[in-house]
Computed example of a mutant assay.
Amino acid sequence: MSHTMRKEENALHDNELGRVIPCNALDWTDPFNWMRLGLLDLAKAPLVTLFYGIIFTLVPLGITFLVEQMDNHLVIAPAIVCFMLVAPFLAAGLYDVSWEFEKGHTPSLWHSIKAVHRNSVHEWAFAILLMVVMIFWLRIASIIHALYPPYISDDMSELIPFLAVGTIIGAVLASAVFMISAFTQPILVERKVDLMTAVLSSINAVWSNKLVMCIWAAIIFVCVLIGFATQFLAFLVLMPLLGFATWHGYIETITTKRKRNYM
């Protein structure tokens, strides 16, 4: 690692809701190092990367196609946000690949697919949690759409208030999802802990490293924008890369009793 990590006081350590795994204090350059390490993993596992990259590309393409068939373009944005909400759960296989490299093993597609079963009860509970958030967002989007004046035209100046309200609400929801999911799935993949411990540990790690995690969130946001700009084709590479990088972010952020073995 490029710097010496130090243990930071954890704001939620004594939270009565559950245990919190301590986190390290991060440097603002760390997210860029996670991307570098993720790129190395991507280059060492091209076939597994391609498999997950295809999935992450086909899902938004399929959503867009279905929405267009319904002839209701207003639901494209919330539908894609829904995909981004469940993406951390789908990335479990990518975390397994990076973990296998850390252990000196050769990763395989089947081994990565089985990653979701290591802590299956709580991992499926996490998936359900994300689905609940997804449904909540869709309902809010529907309410905003229903309450908006029916006489509005397609002129962009008249759509700005509608888009502004949706963007603000979406940003608040995305921030909450980022906090609860930043490291929850990697924790559940590697450790036999309950969902509450994993979620609180993720929230605590993000809260304790606000600036660094804002940089990490910005990197994710830029990658998503690039994906949208390329009709999701860039997701073939960018989504697996973010998955690998997230694993390296997790093992550098969440503390362990033993030294981690990675570059």
Rank of each mutant, 00 (worst) to 15 (best):
165 V>E: 03
204 N>T: 00
79 A>G: 15
120 S>C: 08
196 M>I: 10
28 W>K: 01
167 T>N: 12
41 D>F: 01
176 A>I: 08
43 A>R: 03
172 V>N: 10
166 G>C: 13
21 I>L: 13
42 L>R: 05
4 T>L: 10
121 V>C: 02
127 A>D: 09
34 W>G: 02
94 L>P: 08
141 A>D: 07
107 P>E: 02
74 L>M: 12
50 L>M: 14
235 F>Q: 04
240 P>L: 08
87 A>R: 13
100 E>F: 07
107 P>R: 07
80 I>R: 11
153 S>W: 02
7 K>S: 06
166 G>T: 00
261 N>K: 13
165 V>A: 10
55 I>R: 05
168 I>L: 14
79 A>L: 14
127 A>C: 10
171 A>F: 05
223 C>E: 04
126 F>A: 03
248 H>V: 08
249 G>E: 03
135 I>Q: 00
127 A>N: 11
183 F>R: 07
204 N>H: 08
44 K>M: 10
161 P>R: 05
119 N>Y: 04
51 F>M: 10
139 R>C: 04
167 T>P: 06
251 I>G: 08
35 M>C: 13
203 I>V: 14
227 G>L: 08
45 A>I: 06
168 I>F: 11
237 V>I: 15
259 K>L: 01
121 V>R: 15
91 A>P: 00
183 F>P: 09
33 N>A: 10
231 Q>L: 15
185 Q>N: 12
46 P>A: 11
131 M>L: 15
167 T>E: 07
104 G>T: 00
75 V>I: 15
199 V>Q: 05
135 I>T: 09
250 Y>R: 13
19 R>C: 09
44 K>N: 14
261 N>Y: 14
217 A>V: 04
155 D>P: 00
157 S>G: 03
125 A>H: 01
25 A>G: 15
247 W>V: 01
96 D>N: 08
147 L>V: 12
165 V>Q: 11
79 A>W: 07
96 D>M: 03
34 W>R: 05
62 G>S: 05
113 I>C: 00
185 Q>F: 07
136 F>I: 03
171 A>G: 00
220 I>V: 05
234 A>G: 07
54 I>K: 10
61 L>R: 15
19 R>Q: 08
115 A>G: 08
125 A>Y: 00
115 A>I: 09
